[in-house]
Every structure is written in C-alpha cells, then in structure tokens.
C-alpha cells in the first residue's frame, strides 16, 4: 500500500508518496526524498527552544540544534538544555552544549546575548 508523507523540510509542505515498490514521488526537490527515507527509518527533527541567562533584560535566549536529532530524543534534550544558565555575552552560532546526548548535534545560540549598555 502506498504511504503519504508531508515533507517538513521547508514550509512548502510537499505531499510525498512512497509506493509499494518504494519509489518516491510528489517531492519538489531532492531534500524531500531524503526526508522521507529518514522518516521511514530514523525520523529526526531540529529542536528549537530557549536557555536561561543571568541577565535580567534578556532572561531567556533562543537556541537550536545545529542539525536534526532523533525525534525520540527531543524531551531528553530539553532536560539537558533546561539545566544550562548562560552567564556571559555570546554571539549567534556560539555553542551552548556540544554533542547533545552524544549525537552529532550541538546546541547553538540563535540570538546574541549582549547587555544593553554595550549594544550598538
């Protein structure tokens, strides 16, 4: 029986069909094919959330995994991230946690942490 996936790689959200023979159609780009293959074997997701900081004017800073991690690890990764408190100024892309839960993904900042006085 053919299986339908909605590709989540980009906001286009292609409907990708995998037929009985395993051939893939409906995707508008190559990444859709890769997504569906992963989804059938080891579904992964980018995790985006926030970390605590010690700075009252930026109580939280946003972070993400710099590559997708297994779907099943999302909540565990949250637990690790929730333990972190940033106590220094940092830039977008700086690593907050390396190789989270022994994956290849790092937790990186998606917002710069600059105290107000020093901004601009």
């Amino acid at each position: 029986m053919a299986k339908e996936f909605i590709c989540i790689v980009c906001p286009r959200g292609c409907r990708v069909i995998v037929d009985d023979q395993g051939s893939i159609s409906g995707n508008q780009c190559k990444r859709g094919e890769i997504y569906v293959k992963n989804e059938m074997t080891n579904p992964t997701r980018i995790l985006t959330t926030t970390v605590k900081t010690i700075f009252p004017e930026i109580p939280r800073a946003s972070v993400k995994t710099d590559q997708p991690i297994p779907k099943g690890l999302l909540m565990k990764a949250m637990e690790e991230i929730n333990k972190i408190v940033i106590d220094k100024e940092m830039n977008i892309g700086d690593i907050v946690i390396e190789h989270i839960l022994n994956t290849n993904a790092n937790i990186v900042l998606t917002k710069e942490i600059k105290r107000k006085e020093e901004r601009k």
Binding site: C10, P11, I46, S62, K64, I92, T110, K111
Partner: peptide, 22 residues
Amino acid sequence: CIHNGFGLEVFKEEYTGPEYAH
C-alpha cells in the same frame, strides 16, 4: 518566533526567526 523554517527562499538556508531578523 524562535522556531525554524525562515529564509529558505531569501537566503536558501533555514534559519530561526531571531537569526533571520539578525
């Protein structure tokens, strides 16, 4: 909007909201 999905059309790369704004 700290989630990702921004920028694929403009930058050909996927960003979160704060990164895209930056």
